[in-house]
Simulated assay, not measured.
Amino acid sequence: MSNKRRKKRTPGRKSKKALSKIWIISVVVAAILIAAIAIAAAYIRKMEKSGSEKPDSAGEMGERITFPYELADGKLKVASLFQYSGLNPDCNNEEGEDIAALEIVNQSNEFCKSAEIHVRMEDGTELVFRAEDIPAGRKIWVFESGNQSVGQDDVCEELRDNSEFEKVSLMEDQIRASVEDTTITIENLTGEEITDLTVGCHCLFEDTYFGGVTYSYPTGTIPAGGRVIVDAADCYMGTAEVVWISNNEE
């Protein structure tokens, strides 16, 4: 048996170059794998976050509106979107089935002169609701202006509004208005004849205004200390409630 020790071979120039290439390829592959894992982890975190957070604002595709929902900087609250079947006062009393309707509350201390609310449904359907003359604290049912219907399971994705708030007058220092059913009595509290008055009223149905439209009626001439009777026939679904009185001469 030979006593000679084996010599360890050192790699030659070619084998060194091959090893260098293998090392570089390994580093590149490892870097790609690390980047892919990081991207996947970030995507998972984003999905989890988007699933747990509520949207800051309505209007982006894929969002689901839940009610109640506030508009006009919190002055108006949309309590619900619901279906209604019957005559639509906000579409010239046209009859319909499952008409889209909103329950809106003026939760401000101001008089809402007008509110136009646009609703986009998940299937792309655009709904428009118009309401007038909502006193502070009052609730109103507004029906779709084109008599469009909605399904019970339809999803709302966007609400946006264009609302105006202003002061209105009931002329309490000159006029006293009282109501019984749809009959409005206007009494002149002054010592002078009053002419060219118009009374605006809503139909009140179980403490809720039925329809966004305001009905207006001229009073004719009211003699000093006298009174006139106005028949608010459009409020047949409930009782009339006076929301403004205007002097057309002003």
Rank of each mutant, 00 (worst) to 15 (best):
L170W: 09
K7N: 03
S80K: 12
T66G: 00
V213F: 11
V128E: 09
E158R: 11
I44R: 09
C201W: 07
S2H: 04
K4A: 13
E157Q: 15
I229D: 03
D123C: 03
E53R: 10
M1N: 11
F143P: 03
A31Y: 10
V242M: 08
N106I: 05
E192A: 12
G226E: 08
I37E: 11
H202W: 03
I44N: 05
M121E: 02
I25R: 11
E110W: 04
I222H: 04
G220R: 05
A224R: 02
I32T: 14
V27S: 10
F129I: 09
F67I: 03
T10F: 12
Q148P: 01
L71P: 01
V199I: 15
E158A: 15
H118Y: 11
V199S: 09
L170G: 13
G151P: 08
E116I: 12
A36D: 07
E122M: 10
I25Q: 09
R5F: 13
E110T: 09
E144L: 07
A58C: 12
G225S: 01
C203W: 01
S80Q: 06
I175N: 10
D196N: 14
M1T: 13
N109L: 08
S2L: 08
A42Q: 13
N106M: 02
V168H: 15
L87N: 14
K21Q: 08
G86H: 04
L197T: 05
K21E: 07
I99E: 11
Q107L: 00
C156R: 09
G191L: 05
Y217S: 09
M237H: 07
V119W: 00
S57A: 13
R9S: 13
G96T: 06
L127A: 00
D98G: 05
R138W: 11
W141Y: 14
K54Q: 08
E250G: 09
K21R: 14
S85F: 04
G211I: 02
P223Y: 01
F111R: 00
V199L: 07
G191C: 00
S246L: 13
I24N: 12
E70L: 07
D231K: 13
N162G: 10
P11G: 08
F205Y: 15
S163V: 12
D153Y: 13
R13Q: 10
E110Y: 07
K75L: 01
E60K: 11
G212K: 00
A79T: 04
I194D: 04
D98C: 03
S178T: 15
V179N: 13
D133L: 05
P218D: 15
D133M: 08
T185M: 07
V150I: 15
E164R: 12
R64K: 14
G62H: 06
C201P: 14
D181H: 11
S85I: 00
D56Q: 13
A136V: 02
E144M: 06
I24S: 14
S149E: 07
S149G: 09
F111H: 15
I32P: 02
E193G: 10
R5M: 12
K77T: 03
V155R: 09
A115W: 00
L71M: 05
G238E: 04
A101R: 06
N188F: 06
V119D: 00
V78A: 02
E63W: 02
P55R: 05
A115I: 08
S80L: 01
F205N: 06
N147H: 08
G200N: 13
N247K: 08
R5Q: 15
I194N: 04
A79R: 12
W141T: 00
W141I: 01
E63Q: 15
C203Y: 02
R6L: 14
V155E: 07
S2P: 10
D154Q: 10
